[in-house]
């Protein structure tokens, strides 16, 4: 059964130095508050997994939490670069960052295989690209039934999967709706999981297209209203597009970034 914990305790119990951690949410429902708590608790040497690193991993990488990144598209959507990610890869600041680049299709299927607890997934992908040459997690496989050549990617089973959802009930059952991304797959692929939620309700009302994760499939739930800002929670908030644009000059400069993080993230823990 999922425990209802406060966010600080949930991160302290679930996320350890050296863990493989996936904080997911495809543009929608990105668990920023959980990332900020990981930053405040100064976790180090994490392997971060995420389709779109987005601002959430730009912040974690810039604050020195990560030693490796598994990802498929690392930009600020509609705006430009993730400057902290680039600085880490290009100049080892604040620490060297090993990367394993996939495509969305490939990394998505690594989560799918992880959730299904099978060792790899099969798809039509990567053939002829440089990615299959540089990545140790892309391989060719022959279909045992047709002889066709396909691509295999290994399952990914994070130590911790973290997502944000709209609602949980008091027993820890979770519901999310709108763009549902890979959130179900990440929770089911991970050894431990945390869901931060906008609201705790007495009883969940099922939504069209909604995903329900039963309490027994989740390790912990933390109530964090607004915990996905500047991303958004359909039915609760709008994406703060202005923040994504404003992040560009903040993230471009190391000092401006450090000062912003100190003021807006670290200060909240003091």
């Amino acid at each position: 059964m999922a425990e209802l914990l406060d966010l600080g305790r949930a991160i302290a119990e679930l996320v350890h130095d050296g863990d493989c951690v996936a904080l997911e949410g495809f543009t929608h429902l990105i668990p920023f508050a959980a990332a900020h708590e990981i930053i405040r608790q100064r976790r180090r040497d994490l392997t971060l997994v995420r389709l779109t690193p987005d601002l959430i991993y730009d912040q974690m990488i810039g604050m020195g939490c990560a030693s490796k990144l598994v990802f498929s598209w690392g930009g600020n959507p509609g705006v430009g670069s993730l400057h902290r990610l680039r600085d880490a890869v290009e100049h080892d600041w604040p620490a060297p960052l090993e990367v394993d680049e996939h495509s969305h299709a490939g990394l998505t299927n690594r989560y799918v295989a992880g959730a299904a607890r099978i060792p790899f997934a099969v798809l039509r992908a990567y053939v002829g690209t440089g990615l299959e040459e540089v990545s140790s997690t892309i391989a060719t496989i022959t279909c045992p039934f047709t002889g066709e050549r396909l691509t295999a990617v290994p399952a990914i089973n994070p130590d911790v999967g973290i997502i944000h959802a709209q609602q949980a009930d008091r027993r820890g059952n979770v519901q999310l709706w709108g763009l549902i991304g890979v959130q179900k797959e990440v929770v089911l692929a991970s050894a431990r999981s945390l869901v931060t939620v906008e609201e705790v309700v007495d009883e969940l009302t099922l939504r069209p297209g909604g995903v329900v994760l039963p309490s027994w499939a989740v390790s912990a739930v933390a109530l964090v209203p607004g915990g996905c800002h500047p991303s958004y929670a359909a039915g609760y908030s709008e994406r703060d597009n202005g923040f994504y644009t404003a992040w560009e000059p903040i993230s471009r400069d190391r000092a401006a970034f450090s000062s912003w993080m100190d003021q807006h993230v670290l200060a909240a823990g003091r």
Partner: peptide, 23 residues
């Protein structure tokens, strides 16, 4: 602004998971 703005889901014929889109 992004591929995941709420406006896209709100006006879509169908909203599916990312594994479903790609697979």
């Amino acid at each position: 602004l992004s591929i995941g703005d709420g406006e896209l889901a709100d006006t879509a014929d169908s909203v599916v998971s990312v594994p479903e889109i790609f697979n």
